[in-house]
Design a protein around this nucleic acid. Structure first.
Lengths: 333, 333
DNA sequence: CTGAAAGCGCTTACAG
DNA sequence: CTGAAAGCGCTTACAG
């Protein structure tokens, strides 16, 4: 591969002049610039990224730390990854995607070796092991998911508490007095998936203010357990409505209801929390809180880019809980 | 961040000695090694990746070029990404994931700037624009998907022709004489998604040898078109069996069949082509050719790593079409 | 067993 | 408007 020295020789100028022509950081005469451009084109020159990174202390790479849990439903994650990748590219960054099981270890390896200018953590837990490690690193970080101690980082998440309340409100307004609530798996609560209890606790509390009775179940995540559990729950059902905060369960719901001959909303009102894309993927005809993975991912990138390019001007790190928005698909009565 | 010079000073040795202690490329006395280890631990030193890359011409990063098409079903892609990421890490590599729409342009940018030691392309088309660009680059590449001209690259794909045949055989053996075949969208054929016609053409040809009549449809990819089309097809159905080579259609099939009261296999035999994980995700109770994204991804990584670490010993690039394997889920009669 | 020095390919003050 | 030189943080022949 040709180097900047090859280009300089070819164009009959110094290496620094080529560099400045590339960066535009000082004015170059018309003829010199032309000669350099010709040389670059003829040699097919591209600056070496490693050398540039070494000289500038900037890699133009963002580390994206993905965390896959067995107790979660995998397609949900991709919805964050793609928009983040696209938004990063628009801002001139590439994505180093890290899926290592030991997230904390990976963070240390990647960040302290200077492979990235900043990091984004997906699926941040209440007590996330990656955060204390990252705090010691010089790069900034943006989180998707609300940790117990967010300080130092820009944090973005859906307002799950408000989401739980708004769905209870939706059912309460329509006269429902008894509701089934299906939450994430119990293990998600135990390992500190904050979204799980923020949603559930707020929903239960709100229901209490209406005097609504809620029967709450920890939903399954793997087939065939999902269908079996759903059938058991429906066998014992006395409620007129159902709130599903569990991706695997809501994805399986249409076929289970079909097979039982339960009609929505005539026999049962159903609401959930999932993104529009997720709903399309599984053809879900249910009114739901839009979880906005697209928006959250892009917000994280924007905040991170701001902080990487202008550390001082970016101000104090902030926590932004995106307000829920209900997409009415007429699945309640 | 501390540098190797800081470590050397702290340990009272030269920088080269620290480097050799790190790499193990020459013997270091017991005491020296201990002092260096202490210094590294106390300072929290990690070698700078950019500097190392510059000195060694090795980044220990693999470029993963993902291509999302609107006419394909997105969750399928993630099934390749994860195993590839895991396999790469096991071999000591990180993954730079590139989702840029203009794949050819991205390849040039990433490869010629030396950001990666090698590349993997997913979802390779028959005439893939990324390949001619990559051929001019010094790094090796591995493909998932069979291009028209594979030379220079290691290529891995499911043997889609054999897959089409084996499913026809499966139905023929059970006495079916009239079959519905649902293929990928027409646009997939037009833009050169080779897997589409390799499967279809082989299936049609095999069916002809049995004297089986096949009615072939280009399947839809987006709801609600998928369900509408399926209902139309089933309204006009005279066939006793169905081969589905279309992710969106097979995912939607259970609920459509439920809603129509069509029982599998009593009323209709169904076979498909999808991975075990995909089947679980959508609870698909259908006999199918396992598409083995896991295996294909890992094969690509292994071949690439071999070629990156031992360019000469790796031998000539090879094309490996993985033989199909049918997972019987008792959906045929 | 260890060190001094050159070199990887860039960028950017310093000088003119 | 342009160039010579130092420096980024490593690795690795060369020397002893």
């Amino acid at each position: 591969m040709p180097t900047i020295g090859d280009v300089a020789r070819h164009a009959g100028v110094s290496r620094s002049t080529v560099s400045y022509a590339l960066s535009g950081k000082r004015t170059i005469s018309r003829e010199t610039r032309d000669r350099i451009e010709v040389a670059i084109a003829e040699l097919g020159f591209t600056p070496n990224a490693g050398a540039r990174a070494l000289a500038t202390s900037q890699t133009m790479v963002i580390g994206l730390f993905v965390q896959f849990f067995e107790d979660e439903f995998s397609p949900a994650m991709l919805q964050y990854v793609l928009p983040i990748s696209d938004a990063a590219r628009e801002a001139g960054y590439d994505i180093l995607m890290v899926t290592e099981a030991d997230g904390a270890h990976a963070v240390r390896r990647i960040a302290s070796s200077g492979m990235v200018d900043g990091v984004i953590f997906l699926n941040v837990a209440y007590e996330d092991k990656r955060l204390p490690v990252m705090r010691k690193m010089p790069q900034p970080g943006a989180m998707v998911g609300l940790p117990r101690v967010p300080d130092d980082f820009d944090v973005f998440d859906l307002d799950f508490a408000a989401s739980g309340r708004i769905l209870v409100d939706h059912l309460a307004e329509r006269g429902h007095r008894e509701i089934i609530l299906i939450t994430p798996r119990e293990h998600v609560f135990e390992r500190g998936g904050g979204y799980a209890w923020r949603f559930r606790d707020a929903a239960l509390q709100r229901a209490a203010t209406y005097g609504i009775r809620v029967r709450s179940y920890f939903g399954e995540t793997q087939q065939p357990a999902v269908n079996q559990q759903l059938n058991r729950i429906l066998d014992a059902r006395e409620e007129s409505a159902m709130i599903v905060h569990n991706d695997a369960v809501i994805a399986a719901l249409p076929s289970v209801l079909y097979s039982r001959g339960v009609r929505v909303p005539d026999d049962l009102s159903v609401v959930g929390a999932f993104s529009e894309d997720f709903g399309k993927l599984f053809s879900l005809p249910y009114t739901a809180v839009e979880t906005s993975p697209n928006k959250l991912g892009r917000l994280a990138v924007q905040a991170l880019v701001r902080r990487m390019t202008d550390p001082l001007g970016a101000g104090a790190p902030r926590v932004e809980l995106v307000a829920p928005h209900v997409t009415d698909r007429a699945s309640t009565r």
